[in-house]
Each structure stands twice: as C-alpha cells, then as structure tokens.
Design a binder for these strands. Structure first.
Lengths: 338, 338
DNA sequence: GAACCGTATGGAACCGGTTCCAATCAGGTC
DNA sequence: GACCTGATTGGAACCGGTTCCATACGGTTC
C-alpha cells in the first residue's frame, strides 16, 4: 500500500517507464491505446508522482524563495498575498525567508542562491548591493525585486518619488506652507530601504516646485514604529513655530502623529493636517488621508516577472513601475490661518 | 564552475563518496586526518550538498506544510511568525497553503498529504472532519492543529471558552447586565471554526453564572469584518432596550462596533462599553479593552510539537492549552445607570 | 519486394545524495 | 608470527523520476 512508483505503474500497464513518464507530462507521441492503459494503471494504483524525484532529475527545484522583512509592516502581508495568488496556479511552491536582522539579511543573500534550494528569488524592499547582485547573476539565480530597484535586475517598483510628491503637494494645495515630514531613518538604516530616500525626494521636490524653502528642523527621522513617530511628532509640534501639517512615511507612523496631536489637544484636521502612506486596512477606519500603494498587485506582478525570467533566463531586466493614488479622507484640511 | 557534486569532492580528497557523506553528516567514525582532507576539498570546491538529492535518498522532504486561512485576519500573521521562528533553527522549510475558499480547503486537505510534498502538516484554525483525520493518520502524515482541536491529533489550543468567559465576566463585574455579543457565524460558517463555538459558550456560561438570562436578541452573528460588525452593532444599539456593553468576537469587529457607536453619537465607554478579542497590534493604539491570545507563542509551540511528532511518529497526541489574558484599556467602564 | 521514413516504445543512464556491506588495516593476544 | 577485533573506508545499490538513444513497426515509394 506504500506509495506506488513509476515502475509499478509501468509494470501494471505492461509498458516501459519512459512511456509512463510521457503520459504524465502529456508530451509527444503516445498512442491513444497506450495512454489509456497507463491512465488506468495510474488510477488503479492511486499513483501520484514524487515531486522530489522529479526535481532531482529535472535539475530544478520548482520552488521560489521570497526574502522579506515579513512582519515588521502590515504591507508585506498584502504583498505576499499577491505572490501567493500568482504562484498558486503555477507548479511552483514558495518558501519565505523572514528577515528581521541585518545578519539574517546577509545570510539569506549569501546562502539561499548557492544552496540550490530555489529556482528563483523574490526580494522585497531590501536592496542588494552591486556585489550581491553580481553574485546572484553569476550563480545564475533569476532574481526579481519588489519595492526596490537595481539596473541589473528586473523589478517592480512603486513610484515613491511621485507618491511623496503627491502627499506633499496635496498639503500645499490645501494652503499649507509649514509641512513637517516624519520618515524612516534615511542614512543609518542598516537595510537601506529604497522607498525611504524616494519619498523624501518627492517631499523635497514638491516643496521646491512650490517655492517653499526646505526647513531641516521640520524633517525628523526615526525607527518605523508608532511609538517613535509619536515622540518625533511631539518634538515637531512643540517647536516655537510648529508645522501646520505633517506627512508621515507610513500609515503606522501617521497613527503615532495622530496620537501626539491628541496628547497636545490639537484638533485634526482643523489645527493639524496629517497624511500617511500605504493605505493599510485600518487607515480607512481611522479616516486617515493617505497615499495608496498597490501592494497586492506588486506581489502578483513580481511573481509573474520572476516566472517569466525563470522560463527565459537570458531576457533583459524589466522594470514595472506602479503608480500611487492619493486617498483623501478626514485628516487633512486647509490650515487655520493662511 | 558549475556546482560540484559529492563525487567531485570525493575525487579531490582522494576518498570515497561514502566518506564525504559521513563527514557532511558528521556521523560515526571518520579519522581526523580524513575528515580534514574532506573538509579542505569541500572548501576548495565551494561545495554545498543538494538538498533535493538529499531528500530523495532520505525519503523525506524536509519541508512542512502550513495550511492557514492566512490573510483574512491579522492574527494569522502573528501565528506564522511564531512558526517561522521555531523552524528557522531546524533543517525544515515550510510552505504555506493559503485557504480562502471551501474548495481550496478541501483540495489542500486531500492533496497535500498524498503528494509527498511535506513531512508534516500544521493546520491553523481549520478543523478537519473525523474522516479527514483518518485519512491523515492512514497516510502516516504527522499533523498538528493550532487553534483547533481533535482527539486523534496533537494540538495547540487557545482556551477560548475561558477567554469568552473572561470578557463577559469583566463586563459583568463592571456592573453590566445587558451585554450584547457580536460573533462570527456560529452555524453556517463553511469552515466550522472551533473558537466561534467556544467563545460563545464562554459568553453563555458567564451570563449563567451571574444569573443573567441569555437574551437571543443580544446575540448577533455575521461574517468577520469591520463593516458587517458595524451593521450588526447598529441593529443592537437601536433596539428598544439596547445593551449597555458589547463583546465582539474579534478586535476587528470591535472596531466596527466603535464606529457604530460613533455614528449614533454614543460615548465610549461612558454610554457603551466595548471589549474585543485577540489584542492585535492596533488595539493598543485605539485603547481597546480586549482579551489577549498568545498568537506568536501558539505558532512556536505548534511547530515544536510537529517537529517532535515527525521525530517520533508513534507518540501519542499531545494537547497544549494556552491561556488568555484580559487587557483592560479605555473602552470599558461601569454602565451609567446601575 | 526492398529501401526508406516517421511514429511509438522500451532500456538504461543519469540527477546527487545516503547507506549497506564487504574489504582493509592497525593493534593486541596467544 | 598467525589470528582476532574493531575502527575506517570504498564500492555499489538505491531513492523515483526524466530523457537520450536504439529498436520495432506500419505504411509509402520506386
């Protein structure tokens, strides 16, 4: 009763193993009669082929690896959901390498390609160095970046410069001139997240285009958490000349800002406008004005890109840029005194 | 430069493949001299063994499957994080089978065990039928349930009866007598989630113990979403004799209740007490009183249970019950008129 | 009827590990 | 010095698929 093998099937059907294999992969040239015999034998033995043996003889793992700083932000869950959806129709499984420390990041980047565990790599938000990219290319590992960018690798990028611009511009259009920005760590972050620099650039650009001088005091950086954002917002709002609006790098941080406003008795949006980024699920509930990223779609597109890369290893790197959308809700309004 | 095999290493070290294998698995009896020669060769060739070949010859996949209704609740992310942490030290990978429809559930339960893709199965919240359990046992697939229960399978259970009791009891202790309950679908849910029945039982028990008669009108059921919970709460709060407190099956639903209160101009907690369940991250931010489940830990314990089950296939099913904790915040208070 | 061709088919090598089993060797005993 | 024992070691079979290559066969074509 133990699992039947392809040889058992061959014997029972009175054919060779090669023929059974041909039927399984419905490849070329099997006569209808033989095919039927084989299919009957398969059914009778309740046979199903071993994926592992298949992988070994194909020399492919039929698995893709997803490297993600998985849990530190709700947005990753949404991306992974997209990846899962795109892969569930294919013959590929995926395994997740969760990265929460810089050591783990380096281990993943170094080990996963050489262990022959996966046929392709999907990297989220983390940006490999040029050296690391060389290493991927050299080991022939198809690699696709999501929410990150490298000119030697295909990637699905969110246009965070535009997103940062959009957010800032929205505040400017409402009449704000004193616009604070609370972001993730720009320089010191060990992970070097690309969006951090891009959104900042968008912010600066929008200010410049509107002829507003950038005020370094209005830009605060800190670890991406609600608590830290709350602290930074408190600093901003207790300046002698505080901003009338705050753009937060993420919705999570925007919630920290809202809390700081509440602590100080400031009414939102009357006395302070707040805009976030991501449009995670809870943002709608809290009426947060924010910039929506197409998280789910970025996962789908990234996975599709990777599958096509695996199929055609020599294709040139492709770039997909997903737009962002301003979602106006109730936390932004014109400033009190214009 | 293509990947070296164990035979290349053997040749280079001037030993047999069996010896190399012995060094790799640091098994019995290799002389220090030989071991060194082999290790040198491995280093020189930058060799790393193929997990796939290893799996084939071991007859084990070194992979465990996690079947989870993954994304419909933030709580699963937290559980999976625990699973990941517990497995990252082991030689096991895991792959996720996301279940969002009943068809997919059945497919997973049926196909995953027989495809020889995994050495063990971790099932979250979903409860297999007796038939399905027989099938798992018969196919020799070690299976562990998390947040679910079956007497033939090891499982990590949350004591949801106690949790439901705790929540209700807290409201009673504050002086409430009219306590509404908004839950997930009790009967009709195609998935048959165990916690739904258990929390309800805890609710009923607490009422009974306090000598409060259960009022069917105060119990509303609906699909687990904020929107639906908001609608149900609206119904409850516009009853001729509305409840003074509402217990929600999940934090997500509690947020819907809060919104309904806001819509109706009811002050929380002065005019309405609200208690949730789960203690997801955002609950703290919104000052929601809730019942905390040890989500992360449930993932860790479940994975550990499964690993030990894989190691000792004949061990008897174990049960782990995790407690729940009442987390008092700002959405519950004594009723206005006692 | 022989030469030829394309389609079906089976045997066997191969993927890269693990492990059984037999062989070798060093050291100790009588 | 022959013999025994236990520690090392290498060869080869095996895991269960895929696929190259050779063969068999039915049908044309001259």
């Amino acid at each position: 009763m133990a699992n039947a093998t392809i040889r058992d099937v061959a014997k029972r059907a009175g054919v060779g193993v090669a023929t059974v294999s041909r039927v399984l992969n419905d490849s070329t040239a099997v006569s209808p009669t033989t095919r039927l015999k084989v299919q009957t034998a398969i059914a009778e033995l309740n046979y199903s082929p071993s994926p592992i043996a298949r992988r070994l003889s194909l020399g492919r793992t039929l698995t893709i690896g997803v490297i993600a700083p998985f849990f530190i932000r709700p947005s990753y869950v949404e991306r992974l959901r997209g990846v899962e959806a795109a892969l569930s129709d294919s013959e590929y499984d995926f395994i997740i390498y969760n990265v929460e420390t810089i050591t783990r990041r380096n281990d993943c980047f170094h080990d996963v390609p050489r262990q022959e565990r996966v046929d392709g790599l999907l990297i989220m938000t983390l940006t490999p160095t040029d050296e690391e990219v060389d290493y991927f290319v050299q080991s022939g590992m198809p690699t696709v970046l999501i929410d990150s960018r490298h000119h030697h690798l295909s990637h699905v990028m969110i246009d965070d410069v535009a997103g940062g611009y959009q957010a800032t511009r929205h505040l400017i259009d409402l009449g704000h001139r004193k616009i604070g920005y609370i972001s993730d760590l720009l320089q010191e972050s060990p992970f070097g997240f690309r969006p951090v620099a891009d959104r900042y650039e968008g912010y600066r650009q929008a200010l410049a285009d509107a002829g507003i001088e950038f005020c370094p005091e209005y830009h605060r950086q800190g670890e991406l958490s609600r608590r830290e954002a709350r602290r930074l917002a408190q600093e901003l709002l207790t300046l002698p000349d505080p901003p009338t609006a705050i753009f937060a790098y993420s919705d999570t941080q925007a919630f920290g800002v809202l809390r700081a406003a509440q602590d100080l008795g400031l009414k939102v949006p009357e006395q302070l406008s707040v805009i976030g980024y991501d449009d995670i699920e809870i943002a709608e509930f809290l009426h947060l004005t924010t910039v929506r990223q197409h998280l789910y779609e970025s996962g789908v597109r990234g996975a599709e890109l990777l599958l096509s890369e695996i199929a055609n290893p020599l294709s040139r790197p492709q770039e997909i840029v997903l737009p962002t959308t301003l979602v106006k809700r109730d936390t932004t309004a014109p400033p009190l005194f214009t």
